[in-house]
Design a protein around this nucleic acid. Structure first.
Lengths: 341, 341
DNA sequence: CTGAAAGCGCTTACAG
DNA sequence: CTGAAAGCGCTTACAG
């Protein structure tokens, strides 16, 4: 069964294929009568235009790629949905890529995006992009379509970037919490593969520099595997003997914080009375934990808006900003609710 | 800057475009020397074949669509990743669709899939598909490509389906827990838009039928909004006065269970001493909650394997099974750890 | 406002 | 094993 195409519609409607095409891409001048008639025929025959033919002829697809570090992290899911909403409203489509925190998958997806001749690509990740192979892929990608990166800026980036100032956010949060309780800090989650983790650690370190005696007794744990619930649990549990020395466990994400919370409970430490805990990301479940978890929150809509402006400018061939930086907000919940000196 | 195509590669390599194409689609007979030479030229010029041209010529894309009810639910994320792994291993690609639990989005995505002439579509959702507009979309989709549905079977389905027997799973779990504690049950989460929710409720009801006095005092709550943390919390909290009457809160998913857990804690009810709680899905975080949450778990790999077999059969034009049903397993954690009469 | 016709970049049946 | 050439289904510059 041969599927029907513009030729069939044109014949049935008694017009040319050019007119059918103009109706499909509404922006053109077609008389109202003709348009209505053609649309009726399209509807009646159940015609679905072939996107490959259209993309081939136009030289590019009408889809924007959205690649995120991991679709199992709620913040990225929100970002995807917000971007999809905005892109759809502009009459374009999206294709979602889950990087699974893997360089290999990132490279596979960039190649796929190039083959598809996407209209543009928005890449959001906190994983390091400066590894040679990855960086090469990105430059190749940026050479074939507009690219916007959310989360970090490579030194040799030729594309717009949008990010949070996580150094500042971590520093501010740490200072605030040190005032509540002036004790050493345990920082969980500096992976070699994570750019954001480095930023967050750096902020904590800076805040502690003002109190050398606390900095000396603080610890910065380097995780090399996944930064998930299990890792948070294992890292906290394995430090059972020294945990009482810290006033705050600063986790690079909410998953680690949740895992750590469980370990602390098993060890008989109370949160926040014995030790405070804070995470990063402010995922939806935090208010429902016991104790509810404090976190550093970042506005998805602001980031999505900037990324969209930049990608649309790129598609239109116009210049966009080089870098935009947003700030985060600390959300206090039970895990940091304590008042001392 | 005109991007390079097979013609450029052919000229540079001193062969015909037919040969270049054969090298790209490795399956063909090409001499080793020619192949190596052409590959070298492709690499050197950074050639990326135009997927639209290829799809147009072949009559369909090499991508399989994976549409899931929501990418904010971990089980679906696991399914996506497992399917992607398997599809990639077969030399094809995937495109991910997030239905956001919305019929409108589902319809948009099926139209998009049709325009893209995907090789096939795997749809996984527990939301009802029997609404007229949705059902029409599915039949239209199934008319243009192989379709496999995970999660439910429509009466007039012409496509293979894979699902869990949630009636049986709920019934078995309820029976087992009623033996631990013979008290009425509060069932949370029967939404009118959810097929799976109906199945799960039905299983609980059947198990209770054997104990009419318990069935009489049990409650089945119908939620009409999202079934998330906030809903679980709100529903449990709003029943503060009657909560002590139940021996078990049976939640249609883990998110509701987590929300309910928090509400119970605030009300001073102990889990599992005062009331047991169980969810559905067995997401990764459950062991790290306090108390850790019991859940009904379903094997992703078994489902993914069946779906893949069916879609591949469909693509090859071969017949596949009509329906496959898998069973779930109860995973006991602290929230159901209690022994009585 | 509308149509005739060229052409986007591949793949493949056919011929050698 | 390799090449010449047709054709997939659209869109658009051009002409009227």
């Amino acid at each position: 069964m041969k599927s029907i195409g513009v030729i069939d519609i044109a014949r049935e409607a008694g017009v040319s294929t050019a007119t059918v095409s103009r109706v499909l891409n509404s922006s053109e001048r077609v008389s109202e009568d003709t348009r209505a008639h053609v649309l009726e025929v399209i509807e009646r025959l159940g015609f679905s235009p072939n996107a490959s033919a259209s993309s081939l002829r136009r030289g590019r697809s009408d889809a924007i790629g959205i690649a995120v570090a991991s679709i199992s992290q709620p913040w990225y899911v929100k970002l995807i949905r917000e971007l999809r909403r905005a892109v759809t409203a502009r009459g374009m489509t999206t294709v979602v890529y889950d990087l699974e925190h893997s360089s290999r998958v990132l490279i596979e997806h960039t190649e796929s995006a190039r083959r598809l001749r996407l209209a543009g690509m928005i890449l959001a990740t906190g994983d390091r992009l400066d590894e040679a192979e990855v960086s090469d892929s990105l430059h190749r990608l940026a050479g074939s379509m507009p690219l916007v990166v959310i989360g970090q800026r490579l030194d040799d980036a030729t594309w717009p970037t949008v990010s949070f100032d996580d150094v500042a956010a971590s520093a501010a949060a740490t200072e605030e919490l040190l005032e509540r309780r002036g004790r050493p800090v345990l920082f969980l989650g500096s992976s070699r593969r994570s750019f954001l983790s480095d930023q967050r650690r750096e902020g904590v370190r800076r805040a502690l520099e003002a109190r050398p005696e606390l900095l000396r007794d603080s610890s910065f744990v380097v995780l090399d595997g996944p930064m998930d619930y299990a890792a948070g649990y294992a890292e906290a549990a394995s430090r059972a003997h020294e945990l009482r020395r810290y006033g705050l466990i600063f986790c690079v994400n909410d998953e680690l914080a949740l895992g750590a919370l469980r370990a602390l409970g098993e060890l008989g430490l109370r949160v926040p009375e014995d030790v405070m805990v804070i995470g990063y990301g402010d995922v939806d479940m935090l208010p429902y934990l016991t104790p509810s978890l404090s976190s550093l929150s970042g506005d998805v809509n602001a980031i999505a808006g900037d990324a969209l402006d930049a990608i649309m400018a790129g598609i239109a061939g116009e210049p966009a900003f080089a870098a935009r930086v947003h700030s985060r907000r600390i959300v206090h919940r039970e895990s940091t609710e304590v008042r001392e000196g």
